[in-house]
């Protein structure tokens, strides 16, 4: 069972929900928490576990061999990402823009662009009792999150058996990294705030997930501020509201200390119990089908 925790808007509480839900579930069963917000992973601030594996991650990028090149311009033409630029009798490669699709390399008639590995980030695997925590972090200056998200998912499918519940802390927004982080999920939880801004970005996220044919539920964070429009929207769209986290200064204080909230705030634990009940039903349905 793979559950992605996403949102349109940033700062709605994806990480707060991810780390608390994963830790809460891990009191009873094996859980894998994965931080796929590789541009700014922060789940690790809240997870105290032992490092059991660490590796550099690489993506393949073209490397120009001047003496093989006939300056035909095919590489520049086929690159959708402007990562290969021809200036007369010179080819410039921008590895940070490269999506590692191999088109330039494969289509080069003279093999002047062989692919070579380039380090893009680091993957860490930590473990604390029943909780596995995987964090990938993109190197500074790297622009492409998608190759690292793919690598991370590959690591999980190879190293960790599918009987775990997997919780994916996803990047914000609705662009490529979010698609990559949610496309294999069995269920997507969208975290939002009951404000006009929260609603605006929730709509974008919900529409994106509809396009991906994902079943979704909403968790409302900072309940008590704003207005009822988010609730109304969920009702109209028939999206279940799985839980509500109150707007409470205690939560902010505990968060700022890097601690788990459900252990100290009963209302938060209650919200997690409701979400867990929903997930358990989904798991049972999945096992039956």
């Amino acid at each position: 069972m793979k559950i992605a925790i996403a949102s349109g808007k940033g700062g709605t509480g994806k990480t707060t929900l991810s780390v608390n839900l994963a830790s809460f579930l891990a009191e009873q069963q094996e859980v894998v928490l994965v931080d796929l917000d590789v541009e700014e992973p922060n789940s690790g601030l809240f997870i105290h576990a032992d490092l059991i594996h660490e590796e550099d991650t690489f993506k393949m990028v073209p490397d120009w061999k001047e003496d093989h090149c006939t300056f035909c311009g095919e590489c520049q033409k086929v690159c959708n990402f402007h990562a290969v630029i021809q200036l007369g009798e010179m080819i410039m490669v921008f590895p940070e823009l490269c999506h590692a699709c191999y088109a330039c390399s494969e289509l080069c008639p003279t093999d002047a662009l062989p692919m070579i590995p380039k380090k893009m980030g680091k993957l860490k695997h930590l473990k604390n009792n029943r909780l596995h925590f995987i964090e990938s972090r993109l190197d500074i200056g790297e622009e492409q999150a998608v190759p690292l998200i793919k690598k991370t998912q590959k690591y999980i499918s190879e190293q960790l058996n599918g009987s775990f519940i997997e919780i994916y802390d996803s990047p914000p927004g609705t662009s490529c990294p979010v698609i990559e982080a949610t496309k294999d999920a069995d269920y997507v939880i969208l975290v939002t705030e009951p404000t006009p801004f929260g609603l605006h970005d929730l709509k974008l996220a919900a529409e994106t997930m509809k396009e991906l044919k994902k079943s979704v539920g909403v968790v409302i964070n900072r309940d008590g501020i704003g207005n009822d429009d988010v609730f109304q929207y969920c009702e109209n769209e028939q999206i279940p509201v799985l839980g509500k986290i109150p707007n409470d200064r205690r939560i902010a204080e505990i968060y700022s200390q890097g601690k788990l909230i459900y252990k100290e705030v009963p209302e938060f634990r209650l919200a997690l119990e409701k979400i867990t009940a929903h997930i358990t039903t989904l798991c049972e349905q999945q096992n039956h089908s």
Binding site: H82, F94, L97
Partner: peptide, 15 residues
């Protein structure tokens, strides 16, 4: 329309 790489692309055009 380009999410990334507008700079190199435009520079190439200018070239």
């Amino acid at each position: 329309n380009d999410a990334h790489g507008a700079g190199p692309k435009t520079s190439q055009k200018l070239f």
